[in-house]
Amino acid sequence: MNASSIRFYIPLLLITVFGVFLTVWITTPEKAPWVGMAYSETVTKIAVALLLFSVALLLTYASARLAIRGTTYESNGVWRSFVAPPAFESSESPNKPIEQIESMVGLNSVKREINSLLSRLQIEQQRRLQNMSVTATSQHMVFTGPPGVGKTEIARQLGAVYRTLGVLESGHLVEVDRSDLVAGYVGQTAERTLAICKRALDGVLFIDEAYSLADGSADGGGFGKEAIEVLLKFMEDHRSRIIVIVAGYPNEMRRFVSSNPGLASRFAKTIDFPAYRPSELFAIFQRIARERQYELPDAGLERLLKPWFADRMKSAEWGNARSIRNLFERVCEEQANRLATSAEFGHTIQHISLDDIESAIAKL
């Protein structure tokens, strides 16, 4: 039982107890409850009053919950109406995670897709609050693009958006890849995948390089396909309590989704993440420096880095923002080596020189 459910059980219990006293008092207006009554008569009246009041209260509660949630329940939705925290209880605003997304460098096409998704979710929220029908749509998505372009961060912020809009209770992110889902022996993959899915319940499950699950040659026994079957069943059994995002390179992800009819029907939306341009990579480098409280040289930095970015982008190992972070770490090492033998140590500790960056580039 989670904290949200407890917050509803305590008022229910208090109201029920109060209702018992009130009902017994009303049914015996000539005297205070239990005064002058036989023991058996008192117990009978209390039991009947408790039963009637509890049934009425629970039916009212369930009806209100169903009216708010609409038709988004899973197969055991009637039971869930009693125990699950209500939709749209969050007082948070989706503005904060959306601002985090908007502040990311580049990704304009991705931001448009996210804003469109947010608009639809907000309209659905209002329709539920007004007891109007809502068309059930799959929230699962495919993120395509090279590594290091913000797919994981967007998924994390989307989880926060889903939480603030009441689509998911917690909106937490569980990030995994093939090695987290697939085991080397028969039967272990299903157990491992199911455990991961349960961890992601009421949140977002992000599977990086998901296309490798459909590659039977990777394990020689098709354990990846076993993981897919477990995942699909869990998604169906808990379709209102988990959102799955699968990610990877565009061509590989298209083959992955088409490899199983269940995947094609559940992952209907794809968002493509383009690779960063040299100017965007330069902006990311500057942002990392600001966040870590370093000062970059003004003269010559852009002329040095942009051509280097453009050349390194041609490499198959290029990791976009990930490679920029690695570069900055190397720059910091070069700065530390320089300052360790300098008389200015302690006075210019926040300054990075052009020589530091050139030395770092030469070693990459």
Rank of each mutant, 00 (worst) to 15 (best):
S323K: 01
I357W: 02
E334P: 00
F328S: 03
C332H: 02
N337L: 13
I349T: 15
S342Q: 09
Q350H: 13
S353Y: 05
F328T: 12
H347Y: 15
T341D: 07
I352W: 02
A343C: 00
E333T: 10
F345S: 09
G346M: 11
R325L: 11
S353N: 04
Q335A: 05
R338E: 06
L339K: 08
A321R: 08
L354T: 07
F328M: 08
A343I: 07
T341H: 11
Q335S: 06
S323F: 03
H351S: 08
R325P: 01
C332M: 08
N320Y: 10
V331D: 01
S323E: 09
G319W: 01
E334R: 06
S342E: 01
R338C: 03
A340K: 05
I349Y: 12
C332N: 01
D355S: 14
Q335Y: 04
C332S: 04
I357K: 05
N320T: 12
N337P: 04
G346W: 14
E329D: 15
S323G: 12
T341I: 13
R325K: 14
I349C: 03
D355M: 09
Q335I: 00
I352G: 02
L327V: 10
E333V: 14
F345D: 03
Q350L: 07
L354K: 02
E329F: 05
R338Q: 10
A343E: 01
F328A: 02
G346L: 09
I357V: 12
I324R: 10
F345T: 11
F328G: 01
G319I: 03
H351F: 12
I324S: 01
D355H: 11
C332L: 14
I357H: 03
F345N: 06
T348Y: 11
H351K: 15
